[in-house]
Design a protein around this nucleic acid. Structure first.
Length: 277
DNA sequence: AAGGTACCCAACCGCAGAAGG
DNA sequence: GCCTTCTGCGGTTGGGTACCT
């Protein structure tokens, strides 16, 4: 259709964001909320493309973001969700409060993929390599089942297989993806993931469960009693943005955010409830 | 200490789909 | 129904840093 570039390339700054730019963007969103991103750079006095502003906000500046590596439970959840949803990072991220699709995608590519390969598991199909070679017709019944028709192997099956030196490691196959998961939460997760009704609900494009309060376009001023319905004690949009800037240095926990597990279970419970309707 | 390599992650790019006129 | 605009998504890139020789 011959789309125009999202912004005039002339005079648009690229590359890493400076603290000053971050401040401007945060200030703008605090006072105006998230409106049309295209207008944000101009209104906020930034020489950035709107897209870049949105990305910066969603991937880095949002105060509800978690920092640091994914913990084991989160990682396991990502693996399970990926087995069912494929490379739909945004959907996966929607199940992991405080995590962004970009973050999960990066973590998948740099950590999880290698981990699975090392265990002799194809990160695309989530099948052990030897099993895959043996019988393709056998509808899998493994825990990382392929309920998903598209589970990531129809459109992007060309990638990531070239590095399958994991075949050489297939003797490690006896260790399932859950081999490291002996904690209670992992057990719980597994049981959740084996719950068919719950899994089915993952296919439904339900409204976002975690970031609603950030996705709405209400001006911050109207949001003084936010987060009640979701049960997330986000700091209120008020006063100035200093807390928000500080937030980047600490992490959501420091603001009394619920731990991942609590949120996760809330999300999963919500899914379950939805499925019953 | 210096150079090379691997790794990580923030940011960019291009496309698809939704929304509105 | 068509066209345009905007947003969001997934793939990819490139700079910074850690590690290795």
């Amino acid at each position: 259709m011959g789309r125009q570039p999202c912004c005039d390339k002339l005079g648009v700054k690229k590359g890493p964001w400076t603290a000053e730019e971050d401040k401007k963007l945060i200030n703008f969103i605090l006072t105006n909320g998230q409106c049309c991103w295209r207008a944000v750079p101009k209104l906020a006095g930034l020489r950035r493309c709107g897209k870049s502003c949105r990305l910066r906000w969603t991937n880095y500046l949002r105060p509800d973001l978690k920092r640091g590596l994914l913990n084991e439970a989160e990682e396991q959840l990502v693996i399970d969700l990926h087995a069912r949803l494929g490379n739909r990072w945004s959907k996966i991220a929607a199940r992991l409060p405080g995590r962004t699709d970009n973050e999960i995608k990066n973590h998948w590519n740099t950590h999880i993929k290698k981990k699975l390969l090392k265990m002799g598991i194809d990160p695309v199909t989530h099948e052990p390599f030897h099993k895959e070679a043996k019988t393709e017709e056998s509808s899998s019944i493994s825990q990382t089942d392929n309920l998903l028709p598209e589970s990531g192997n129809n459109n992007n099956n060309n990638s990531s297989m070239q590095e399958n030196d994991g075949i050489a490691n297939s003797e490690e196959n006896s260790s399932s993806p859950q081999e490291n998961c002996c904690s209670d939460e992992s057990i719980l997760l597994n049981s959740i993931c084996n719950d068919e009704t719950l899994l089915n609900s993952l296919w439904i494009d339900e409204p976002p469960l975690v970031d609603a309060s950030w996705n709405n376009n209400n001006p911050p001023a109207t949001e003084n009693t936010n987060n009640g319905e979701m049960g997330y004690p986000y700091p209120s949009w008020e006063d100035n943005c200093t807390w928000l800037l500080d937030c980047q240095d600490f992490g959501v926990q420091d603001f009394g955010f619920d731990s991942f597990d609590n949120l996760e279970f809330k999300s999963l419970n919500a899914l379950e409830m939805e499925d019953k309707h």
